[in-house]
Amino acid sequence: MSTSSALFVVIVAGLITYVCRSSLILTLADRTLPASVERALQNVGPAVLAALTINLAVGSDGIGSVEFAEVAAIVVASMVALWRSNLIWTFVSGMVTLWIVGAIT
């Protein structure tokens, strides 16, 4: 790929990314939406985070590629998250479970 076309790709990709991130913030910032839409927007965060979690956990190789240790790590981390509501504890418990169960199985 030539330097000029590579540079074109990188600059346009940067613009696309910025527009995806900013467009709704900028267009919705100065207007009040109907109450039902505002309530629906409150569910976007949990829905997209859950979808992101599952997509990252399973990966592109499908559900058959998921190891038992990985499932155990997510389950333990989720329980610790509900119990402590603390991100560092969630991270540490999940990773330790992944290492221990991964070493056993």
Binding site: R39, Q42, N43, V44, G45, P46, A47, V48, L49, A50, A51, L52, T53, I54, L56, A57, E70, A73, I74, A77, S78, V80, A81, L82, S85, L87, T90, F91, G94, M95, L98
Partner: peptide, 30 residues
């Protein structure tokens, strides 16, 4: 594998109402 572990916790922190829980559950399964 740390990102899905972190995002699992963040998803649970974000659920404060029943409809948000439904949204997360359906979002995850779909």
């Amino acid at each position: 594998y740390a990102p899905p572990i972190m995002f699992a916790g963040l998803t649970l922190f974000a659920i404060k109402r029943v409809p948000a829980g439904v949204a997360a559950l359906v979002g995850g399964f779909v």
